[in-house]
Design a binder for these strands. Structure first.
Lengths: 230, 230
DNA sequence: GACCGGTATCTACCATACAAGATTGCGGAA
DNA sequence: TTCCGCAATCTTGTATGGTAGATACCGGTC
């Protein structure tokens, strides 16, 4: 099975609580589609897999259910929630309104070191894209957008939408082929270039264009993986 | 003490799970300031108070912690989270961008029955405001805004921000005097009037004005209740 | 009197046992 | 063959005991 095995190295850790480690492992498996929408999992199942009792697993389920990744049906079963197309659209609507506002602020007050930081992130992404390393590319892409939020002084607001963004991430993971990754890097460059010029309108347009990319892919993705959607 | 006592009527209920009932009770107590920011609570304490075991209480704590109302300090204690002024500002920023977009859509396509529904809600609010019934006014105010979201076809998006809105609710509860309630009703009327005219720009302006009311009150509230804020 | 160390006692965390609802499947009746 | 009902076996929900860590208190030392 393709489930991530954190178990092996879990004897004595100085890290945090078991429940949180299970949360991270499961969330990673769900977003990367190792656990597919519709899959049924049980507390006992996961508990045995990770070598812990049902208790921490149960708490992990609660957290993930609240983030919209799991659906707990009392006394029945717990399933990996299918992706809601309508939910994806509305999540994207929210994200776009916020990120557009963010990029406007960044472009309006961009300094040299700001541009340098962003270019550094883009260089890493380019390497990952050429190596076709999807698992490494994804965090880098996220890091790029989060850095923009921090530069705009609204990192807290970014965290607010971060949870709900995972719905979008699942779709994105399905659609990320090689060309997609390279195109994403190219679009990031366009955005940073506008920021470097202090071109507010241009940066906003580039960001809207970048985010709207997923829109046209959604319908196609539903066609390719109909079982993963509601 | 002023904690809500659901316990009395909890013998055999056809309702849902105990954990969810504890969640609702605690959340209500927190938002209405029966449990004040900084108050320390423990699993055993609440468990005894509600006549259940520690297990459902623990799960309730996890849910509320993820919603930002509680702060669980492992092996130490669990406290009612203090209000973060910066968090309030950014939550308000997010809410405003979304609600402004909502009211624009509603105003652009408002029918007669739409206006009738909104006027009905306002009538109820007016009654509660004149009776100075804060505990009844609050849900009605929320219902008004939620109805707008539903009319705009983005009820799901409203649910997304609903959790984080509780931070704002706590501040609002502190500031809701009689005059505030009556002014809120008055502003709601102004909004609906613009919607009835199909006046998009007017509705947007009225909504911005309505939401910005809390902004000026935040600093004053921090001065009045410094211990409730970070 | 001020400071330091050990201990009692709190906390949340985890494991285990039991309970109750829901599903599945099997066996018998029509 | 089809359909109905009961029972074995799933699931999550709840209760309780024990564990490790953190705090607070209290007595002794300087």
């Amino acid at each position: 099975m393709g489930i991530s095995k954190v178990t092996a190295s879990v004897d004595q850790t100085i890290d945090e609580t078991m429940a949180l480690r299970v949360v991270r492992a499961l969330r990673d498996d769900i977003v990367t589609m190792a656990l597919k929408p519709g899959d049924v999992i049980s507390e006992s199942d996961i508990a045995g897999r990770y070598g812990v009792s049902r208790q921490p697993v149960r708490e992990a389920f609660i957290r993930l259910a609240q983030q919209g990744l799991l659906l707990i049906r009392p006394k029945r079963a717990t399933v990996v929630k299918k992706i809601s197309p309508e939910g994806v659209r509305q999540s994207r609507f929210i994200r776009e309104s916020i990120e557009v506002e963010i990029i406007r602020r960044v472009a309006a007050q961009a300094g040299d070191e700001t541009v340098a930081v962003l270019n550094g992130l883009i260089a890493e992404q380019e390497a990952a894209a050429q190596a076709d390393d999807t698992r490494r590319f994804h965090p880098l892409d996220e890091s790029f957008h989060r850095s923009l939020a921090r530069l705009a002084g609204v990192e807290y607001a970014w965290q607010l939408i971060d949870d709900h963004k995972m719905q979008l991430d699942r779709v994105r993971y399905l659609t990320l082929g090689l060309s997609s990754k390279q195109r994403a890097v190219s679009e990031h460059k366009t955005i940073v270039a506008a920021v470097a010029r202090g071109d507010v309108a241009g940066a906003e347009a580039a960001m809207r264009d970048h985010l709207s990319r997923a829109e046209v892919l959604l319908a196609q993705t539903i066609g390719d993986f109909p079982d993963y959607f509601e």
